[in-house]
Design a protein around this nucleic acid. Sequence first.
DNA 1: CTGAAAGCGCTAACAG
DNA 2: CTGTTAGCGCTTTCAG
Lengths: 340, 340
Amino acid sequence: MSVTLHDVARAAGVSIKTVSNVINDYPHVRDATRTRVREAIDALDYQPNLTARSLRSGRTGAIALALPELSLSYFAELADSVIEAAENIGQVVIIERTGGDRDRELQMLTSWRRKMTDGLIFSPLGMGMEDAARLSVSYPLVLLGERIFGGPTDHITMKNVDAARAATEHLIGLGRRRIAVVGAHKDEVVGSAGLRLTGYRQALDAAGIAFDERLIAYTTLWHRSNGATAMHDLLERDVEFDAVFGLNDTLALGAMRVLQESGRHIPVDVSVIGFDNLDESMYSLPSLTTVDPGRTQIARTAVQSIMERMDGHENVAPREILADFRIVERESTARVITSS
Amino acid sequence: MSVTLHDVARAAGVSIKTVSNVINDYPHVRDATRTRVREAIDALDYQPNLTARSLRSGRTGAIALALPELSLSYFAELADSVIEAAENIGQVVIIERTGGDRDRELQMLTSWRRKMTDGLIFSPLGMGMEDAARLSVSYPLVLLGERIFGGPTDHITMKNVDAARAATEHLIGLGRRRIAVVGAHKDEVVGSAGLRLTGYRQALDAAGIAFDERLIAYTTLWHRSNGATAMHDLLERDVEFDAVFGLNDTLALGAMRVLQESGRHIPVDVSVIGFDNLDESMYSLPSLTTVDPGRTQIARTAVQSIMERMDGHENVAPREILADFRIVERESTARVITSS
DNA sequence: CTGAAAGCGCTAACAG
DNA sequence: CTGTTAGCGCTTTCAG
């Protein structure tokens, strides 16, 4: 079997406590002893049993991350960021798929399997405001996303309204006045779509531009194909527009594609902006201007928050943290020099 | 603190052994006792401590999955499949990022953190054949991918050569004779690029079509933009072609894009096929014909293999398992009815 | 059919 | 500065 503290202790001719002290960098160990123990550890290739350590310490060193599915780019990149942030502080991440299904999300919250983790970073898609109370759990839980606000836990999300407003203002700053929106959800108030549409309207209002319902294209899902279909709708509607705000990058990419097929040139005829700053947006043709919603900050803060709640901050009031956003200017909104 | 076996035992008026028996569905428990214990469990909302169970049983219920990064769609979807497969048999998955870096991959193999898992599903990108011996480890390890063959562990991968050959034959079957390849790697023999190019050449040979070096476009990375750039190269090369084989979907998607911009119609002027069957290939315009490399089967088999190696099959000789592939026909290779 | 008790490998009081 | 010892919560012989 695997080598234990006892084996090392015997080999080094000390007690297991001393070995433990060396391993945990406990200061009061004589140098000679320390090196002797170190040698024994190396010789035997001793590796601590993390399970035993967990049982003793009550910590597992693992964080659960529950999200809809990794085949959605946004969540894949979110997971990547969370794993990286966790790794930086020596934690590992267990990923759980909910499929965006409300029942599975609720189930997740009380799952046995959660017991092997120190906390849960939870990104629901199916749950709504009416489920907020269910987030009251006895372990560190951090909520992500735009489905539930004002819940009983720390909530880390992006400045959807402000960022969408800034994105729209960016287009307005380019001289655009007829700005189409791709991916809106009918009658949604919270939720990414609702909040971002609010930001859009705020920017319009501030600039004195009238809101035109005909410029809004609705989709239920946010895949590339939905962006494409929405753009087809817009083109058929025969309404003029000189810019497009894709409510996320995937939509914008799909819309951009159809725009180009229709013979319009981006960014000369139409400027396009997205939201999410996915990796692939950097590589599209033209590259896509987008809103970086601060994913790494969200990930880092989420992990940090779990750790804080673990050691003593259990009773601090729930916090609402909004990550800083940033417009990433790329080719799709380049200023075009027109010869006059 | 949390409720333990003792608490339940006390509440039910039995010993902890009996409670344990009930929890583990041990058959020889009197019905009356069983229900009494069940009630106590419900009343106290008892949940077993998985860490303690792990310490005792020597199993953690978690599998590690080491891969380059989740922002690459292929790996995101692979991870999704592995998580799903693991979930089906009650295991969770810890994802580790290597960035495709050889040193980090080697490090992964001996990491302390691996100790919290029952085994490792390992998808290297930086390591090569010369590192095969490093895969000799004392825990269940399953190798994925095309970097190392004939190593000391179970290896699950796809039929790269056969599938690439079938993809090429699919194009030939459409009447195509000048088939360009996007994403080749210079002088590579193993590795996805090398193997798939071999399959391509086999199909050509079998059909009596001469290999033309000018139809091969090389790229180092396999992003969309690389597919686009490669296609630009091909077009500038001024060489005729009537079909494109993207060595993966991402490349094919990028290439398709540039083809369309150049005024060529897919599939009328040029047929395009990819490799990987990513989710997004279903939603492109036109939708992309591709090779489904059997990702779910790979994931399922990998998880299964870890479990088998855990209980007794330690000494079975390493197996090389190739998943079944399948051509997924979509619009990009639709047969075009030409009026003659 | 059920109970007592040992022990998985580790950490942390508490002694010395 | 180092050793002894008592558990963390569970499973599992071994007795009854």
